[in-house]
Amino acid sequence: MPDTATTPRNITAAHEDPPAVRIALIATALLIMGVLIVVPLVNVFYQALAGGLRLYFENLLGDPDTLHSVKLTLIVAPAAVLANIVFGVAAAWAIARFKFPGRALLTAFIDLPFAVSPVVVGLFLVLIFGLQGFLGPWLRAHDIKVIFAIPGLIIATAFVTFPVVARELIPLMEAIGADEEIAAVSLGARGWQMFRRVTLPNIKWGLLYGIILCNARAMGEFGAVAVVSGRISGQTDTMPLRVEKLFQEYNMPGAFAVASVLASLAVVTLLVKSALEWKTRSDLAAAAREASEGGQA
């Protein structure tokens, strides 16, 4: 670029870093992402597969306690996620569509589980449902087990992942607005009809991402579940708890085999998120194109 054209070049340079700074920044960012995220992610799969595929599947499928932990996680996580989906949709409908006293407070309360340490959650559940707990004598008299059993695992998981779906849906529904729903109701749609035909199609992608993220969190939950499970091998160990037990037994190939399954789940979650974001962007672009063509015609 000729040096005489000073004004335009200076203006571009105004929001561009000098080349040396640019290279240094990009290199540092790559180093940070590499050490913090990429190397650990690669290491999980490398360590899991280091002994070959046969050993990997033997570690995963040959150990009855590990297999049981997979089954238990497949029971606990969907149950907790399902409960939080119903809550998330109800909360988003109430908060994004209506104005009422205490709305801001309710929104703050929904975030509360993010601020409570999972271990504290587990402890509080033991205080209610444990043998010495507030409901302990009653539960024992009726022969109901919550702590050291599946119900406790579900409750603990649901508590920790409580805000996830609601937090995805509330801003989305606020952004979409109520016009289409009001139109549907004015045209005579009944409540559930409006929900199935108008609301659900509008929020489906956000809801899907909320469910997938909630599921990833539920399957990976550790602290709260560790406290309420009692960590009985082959009975109350979920997959993350199994990882810790194998780690403590110095069975690193076994621990990494289970960890690699959980890490794959995380990778799938990120892929779905990227795909949904890409889809939303191309939908918006298509809508904008249509609008501008309509304007020209």
Partner: peptide
């Protein structure tokens, strides 16, 4: 996309690795 990995990766896996 990878920035979100700590959101999605179970904490036990993070600790182990």
């Amino acid at each position: 996309a990878l920035v979100d990995l700590p959101f999605a990766l179970p904490t036990a896996v993070a600790g182990l690795v």
